[in-house]
Design a protein around this nucleic acid. Structure first.
Lengths: 142, 142
DNA sequence: CCAAAATATGCTAGTCAATTGCAAATACCT
DNA sequence: AGGTATTTGCAATTGACTAGCATATTTTGG
């Protein structure tokens, strides 16, 4: 069984030959940078279609795949099963998602260390990786 | 935005009128009880089809949906996007998944409390819910 | 600045997991 | 057993996502 990792992966520049800065890619990145919350491919497509009528949904999917490989975007799966995407900066972190406004903050992993220790002590389970998402209320919405 | 919860939800008996103990349902529950690891609907279908040739895949899907509502089954999403299911007992917990054998242990939430406190202290984020999966090596595989 | 090479896009058609409608079959209750 | 509520199997569909390929765009080298 494969070990999944929901935090942003380290950037994998080595896999990328050349990446053209196309208008479609710029549009997707700009939108995600501005929103800072998880959006599905079809939502992104609908939002960008207004200013770029000939944009194709498949281009959005391909762009999101590329950006995810680069580490500029992190994806998750909605309860419905749909994939959604958010812009992210750091190498590795987890997300704190506001249940009111949907705003996504990045959470550093430091606090996970003590949790790992507690888990090993209680259950003798060796923790290799973790996939974590937090739901709560951000500073503004509280 | 909706708050998802990947741990087993509290059982919702109130929503259920009557539930017939059919052979299909017994077969699915027995299989999942015996396996104790995440299986996809199509895998479950393939395994049960041998002893029950006229079983339909849609029945497996409907059964898994019912069992999930009852709280007897917990679901997650594989990296591929497919949904997978595991039998579970307790009201609320999280899963420690062995990366070697795939065995799923239930982790109680006690350790989350101190983590919640640390998160609030560091980032002033009010943690309401959490969705956690751990990957590591279980007692036997270590 | 222009043309060739490299890469990306749009479109269409496809794939595959998952859902739905409905008649037939099964489980429960008395 | 007989009647009713629920479930099943089957077939048709949905909906997210991917792939093939000709065209268009971006970069690079002259």
């Amino acid at each position: 069984m494969e070990a999944a990792e929901a935090g942003c992966p380290a950037r994998k520049w080595s896999l990328v030959k050349t990446m053209y800065a196309t208008t479609a890619r710029r549009a997707v990145v700009d939108l995600l940078k501005g929103e800072r919350r998880y959006l599905t491919a079809s939502t992104i497509f609908a939002l960008l279609k207004r200013d770029n009528p000939k944009l194709a949904l498949s281009t959005v999917y391909r762009t999101l795949e590329t950006l995810t490989e680069l580490g500029s975007v992190s994806s998750r799966t909605e309860p419905s099963g749909e994939a959604s995407f958010v812009y992210c900066n750091d190498e590795h972190h987890h997300h704190a998602i506001c249940t009111v406004c949907g705003h996504v903050d990045e959470v550093d992993c430091a606090a996970m260390e003590q949790f790992r220790a507690a888990l090993l002590a209680n259950q003798s389970f060796t923790l290799d990786e973790h996939s974590v998402e937090f739901y709560g209320r951000c500073t503004r919405c509280r």
